[in-house]
């Protein structure tokens, strides 16, 4: 049972949330000009990454707001959550943080 930090409400139980797949996929603006492949990439294709995953969540049984999170799909560890519109956190830095954590070299740090 995950413990998720809503950027507005703080830590809450997973049962209050729902997940909505990969984040930072902007809807194309000039949709009429796209060919099938370009449109198909937007509608159907996702990175399905092992490791860091930028994803969207809603706090349904709370503030009902959307937000983004970076979660390690291997360990289910949430590295950071942030409001929509805020820039995606740097993957390299997060990867380092994750590998420090796994190897035990990192000092305790609050994310």
């Amino acid at each position: 049972m995950l413990l998720i930090e809503c950027p507005w409400c703080g830590q809450r139980d997973q049962t209050e949330f729902s997940a909505h797949g990969e984040a930072h996929i902007a809807r194309p603006t000039e949709t009429a000009t796209l060919n099938d492949e370009q449109w198909g990439n937007y509608v159907f294709f996702r990175s399905n990454s092992k490791g860091l995953h930028y994803e969207r969540w809603t706090h349904d049984f709370g503030c009902r707001r959307w937000f983004n999170a970076v979660r390690d799909t291997v360990s289910d560890q949430f590295l950071v959550t942030y409001k929509p519109g805020e820039p995606a956190p740097d993957a390299k830095q997060l990867t380092q943080q994750l590998s420090d954590a796994t190897s035990g070299t990192a000092k305790v740090s609050g994310v």
Partner: peptide
């Protein structure tokens, strides 16, 4: 002590 100093753990406990 760990619960007090690091309520949101990011590192495996030894």
């Amino acid at each position: 002590r760990a619960a007090a100093s690091d309520p949101k753990p990011s590192v495996p406990m030894p």
